[in-house]
Design a binder for these strands. Structure first.
Lengths: 353, 353
DNA sequence: AGGTTAGGCTAAAACGATTTAGTTCTTTTC
DNA sequence: GAAAAGAACTAAATCGTTTTAGCCTAACCT
């Protein structure tokens, strides 16, 4: 069956090789092979000679351990499950990349999925990942996911939230930008530039991170003695067209009712510039524009849009390191309370204000 | 150990429940439970009564089958491995999403990873996926990956290439846009609009899909009796800054040496508009711009950029259905030769030409 | 009555690893 | 010289499933 000149492991009819194939060919037991493959050979006092023979045979046959079997036996898969809102959104894509890169440094693999902000889908994904025995989770939660997440913790599976958090559930650690501080900084900047009639565009949601952003807007206005607020809440389940419609509608009053607008998310900002382009609003002459969270488009748009930029890399890294910490002490009682880690945002000044 | 009022499966100290826990509690054998859980109960003539009891106990205990064990036993994981160039690139993100959605219709899960166009990394990823026993692969290949892919086929793991293909390896099926036709259509459009000095910006690579695009450019020029071509090849490994530099450099000659420019990829187009913005080139007055492959930025840029749009959804769907076809007949001899499936691209006219 | 069939289940092997507890020599130690 | 220790391995259990091959009882033929 040997094809001349072709190394065994490249032959096209080759079947998967298991640890016992190697054992047979090397004339030792499977345990011995296992020890050698896991660098436990010295501890198990396998002789130099046998180690070399086994390694040689394994290489020759192109052996790759079956991770299903390994995971089944050890209970660890060296995999972390990452659940984000939508992987094709630039913010989450970048976050996912940073988490993946960071995880690799700990020799962990990550498998990711999107909830599309659907509660039901989020639950399904958690189930799916749990069935696949991931060791831990990094989750961008939806509103009512706390119970489900506590179940995971109950199974001793560590969870770290990112981007959002549950103020009422401090037993679940979270890593996110300091939303309150970020929006405050943006508001102070607009006010310092002389704008006082500042409109806010946000999205309908009960989640704490967005409430923090809104609260910052209100607090800053109040602190400056500005009584009236102007807030547009884009309905939760609107599709692109509908949302664009609402934002466009509001922006027709730019200059009249307000002279600056602050978009509270990346996605809203994109809608905003789409509307601004359509309405041919002059930025910043007629209207100053600021957005929470950056996007390539903001840099390239004319005029380029100033933003409050989240430290995405740092969030990813901190989330992974927090999870690894928990994984290392898994089994031990997790702390009952952890304040969310809130990282500081930058103000990136561009042309729009 | 029971907490009053709390359903068993939400108790926080709960351990994972296995099929044998259910068997014990329901007073039957594990085989019976397995049959019931896999809808084989009727075929195995399990009584109505036992079926109901088992289902009830399973639900009550919150049973979730362990997919590692299942995969180990059956040899199928219902998972497909997707390898793209870079998941944070809009094109691949959209493609990944469409593949994921389509796969779900066949009840398959997808796990994805990025090569960053690194040959070595691509090999590692294939290995990693292979160790995790994915059932099949959808791959955006790098230049020298054909051998590695044939190995997979040798292990009876079906592979479908997307976006790129190996002309010399027709035994590996591929699904992609019709690059030659797409670029031809773009060129004809530019020529019809009266532009004859058309510059091309491409990326340094030996891969067939890019060669096809370049070939189309040349053929169309020749067909129209235009002798001189103007091609900028951006070096392969340049970082964002360096690449931007090169493109900017070239665009300083816009209007003088050429009156239209055709960017051959999404990424190059983004670099292009970044340079155009910096150089304040008037589009389309001084320079007509066309790009192969769409991007949100092109729609929102002022002026908006016309593109040749790939049928991303269709590519994803066709790739999945091709893979499923192979999966269904796995074990049988795969056809030795398959012409790549080449789907037609659209011309999307915007303001840039 | 004896043999076949059907109904309703279960035992046990298998998937591919890891790991605990030995086993069998050989060498020290007292 | 017997007991203990060390060296170099190996046998077998185990993880949680699926699946094949039975087992046992009751009903059905002839």
């Amino acid at each position: 069956m040997n094809v001349i000149g072709v190394p065994a492991h490249t032959q096209y009819y080759m079947k998967k090789v298991s640890i016992s194939d190697i054992a047979r060919k090397a004339g030792v037991s499977v345990s011995t092979v296992s020890f050698v493959m896991n660098d436990k050979a010295v501890k198990m006092r396998i002789s130099r000679e046998v180690i070399e023979r086994v390694e040689h045979v394994a290489r020759e046959m192109g052996y790759r351990p079956n991770q299903l079997a390994r995971g089944l036996r050890t209970g660890k898969t060296k995999t972390i499950g990452l659940i984000v809102e939508n992987i094709s959104n630039a913010f989450f894509a970048t976050l996912a990349k940073s988490i993946e890169d960071e995880a690799k440094r700990y020799d962990y693999k990550v498998v990711y999925c999107s909830t599309d902000n659907d509660e039901e889908k989020a639950r399904d994904l958690i189930n799916m990942l749990s069935q696949r025995q991931v060791d831990g989770y990094i989750i961008t939660p939806t509103l009512n996911l706390a119970e489900e997440i506590r179940k995971l913790q109950g199974e001793s599976k560590p969870v770290v939230l990112i981007d959002r958090y549950f103020p009422a559930h401090t037993e679940i650690p979270a890593v996110l930008v300091d939303n309150y501080e970020g929006v405050s900084r943006g508001m102070e900047y607009l006010l310092a530039k002389g704008y006082s009639r500042i409109a806010l565009v946000t999205i309908e949601t009960e989640m704490a991170h967005m409430k923090d952003r809104l609260r910052a807007y209100r607090d800053v206005l109040r602190r400056h003695g500005i009584g009236e607020e102007l807030v547009l809440v884009v309905p939760y389940n609107s599709d692109h067209e509908a949302a664009l419609q609402v934002v466009t509608q509001m922006l027709t009053r730019a200059g009249a009712d307000f002279d600056a607008v602050f978009f509270l998310t990346n996605y809203l900002g994109v809608l905003g510039i789409e509307a601004i382009k359509k309405l041919q609003i002059k930025v910043p002459e007629q209207l100053a524009v600021l957005c929470f969270d950056d996007n390539d488009i903001f840099r390239l748009f004319t005029p380029s849009i100033s933003v409050i930029r989240q430290p995405i890399e740092a969030i990813g890294q901190k989330a992974v390191s927090t999870l690894m910490e928990r994984l290392r002490h898994s089994g031990e009682e997790a702390p009952l309370t952890n304040l969310p880690v809130q990282l500081e945002a930058d103000l990136v000044r561009r042309e729009s204000i």
